[in-house]
């Protein structure tokens, strides 16, 4: 590529990067300002004196409706929800993918097609039947119920990820293990799962992001004690007091976003590697 074109390319990339980073910058700088400074200053200016008061308030004392104890409770709710939901949906996806690619049975293709169908159903359609189902199971408005919903809705995606990854593993490997005397579980745990690191990371990141950021199910299927942070953030931002505390709102939004950002920063390289893993046979 010639030099001027390279320059243009970098300029375009730079503009795109700034465009996407600008909201984050505004959130971060606003969250570190005092209300006085926000009223007096300009949106893009750097904070004069850095203050963590807004963060403290958002975490501990901001009002979310009539309760005024910040987002901390909601945050831990989300943690308690996301860990089992991600682990269970990923484990089931891996197992499904293993069966649908390496232990095919009569109708397994149909089963896979039906699972894929789950990817195309808008979640809003599920709300009423799911509420009914949770009621039957006695899980309505509980943390376990919310985890159950996320697992059910996540299986289609996780199964697809693992199944497509496992299709690339040669069948001869499974045959060799069978001749070595290994059965279904031993082959899965000792041979197949250790080969799955790239797709495992992709699925974990994907599921974590989906479930942590979910608002719809959190709003509909939880109440009081079990509401996740997305619902808490909504309540905090919508609670009307005399003044709109932009700095507190921004800090709250950042608190809600931090875990997913952290996951991407820590495991992002696996994400890209895992997505590429299916493309080139190892």
């Amino acid at each position: 590529m010639s030099k001027p074109w390279r320059g243009v390319l970098y300029a375009v990339l730079l503009i795109a990067a700034v465009y996407y980073l600008l909201p984050l910058y505004v959130m971060l700088s606003t969250s570190l300002k005092t209300m006085d400074e926000i009223r007096g200053g300009n949106l893009l200016s750097l904070p004069g004196a850095i203050s963590f008061d807004a963060w403290r308030k958002a975490w501990g004392t901001a009002c979310t409706g009539i309760e005024c104890s910040g987002l901390s409770g909601y945050f831990w709710n989300s943690v308690r929800m996301v860990i089992p939901a991600v682990l269970i949906s990923t484990a089931l996806g891996a197992l499904n993918g293993y069966v649908l690619s390496k232990w095919r049975f009569r109708g397994s293709e149909l089963a896979f097609a039906m699972l894929l169908f789950g990817l195309y159903i808008p979640f809003q359609v599920l709300l009423l039947p799911m509420a009914q189902t949770l009621g039957w199971f006695g899980l309505a408005r509980s943390m376990a119920g919310l985890v159950f919903v996320h697992v059910v809705c996540g299986i289609a995606g996780t199964t697809l990820f693992f199944r497509n990854f496992y299709v690339g593993i040669p069948d001869e490997l499974i045959k060799a293990a069978r001749l070595d005397g290994a059965g279904f579980w031993r082959i899965f745990l000792r041979i197949v799962l250790p080969m799955s690191l790239p797709i495992l990371m992709v699925t974990l990141i994907w599921q974590f992001t989906q479930i942590w950021n979910d608002f719809l199910f959190g709003l509909v299927f939880s109440s009081g004690e079990s509401q996740p942070i997305t619902v808490g953030l909504n309540n905090l931002a919508n609670t009307s007091t005399s003044v709109k505390e932009y700095n507190v709102n921004m800090a709250a939004a950042l608190i809600a976003a931090l875990p997913t950002i952290a996951v991407y920063v820590l495991a992002g390289k696996y994400f890209v590697r895992g997505l590429a893993a299916g493309a080139v046979k190892g």
């Binding site: 040669p170 001869e172 490997l173 045959k175 293990a177 069978r178 001749l179 070595d180 005397g181 000792r190």
Partner: peptide, 16 residues
């Protein structure tokens, strides 16, 4: 297969 007292070498070697 495991109880047939056989061992097999595959074309792709099938090493773990």
């Amino acid at each position: 297969p495991k109880d047939r007292d056989i061992a097999m070498v595959f074309q792709s070697y099938a090493l773990y």
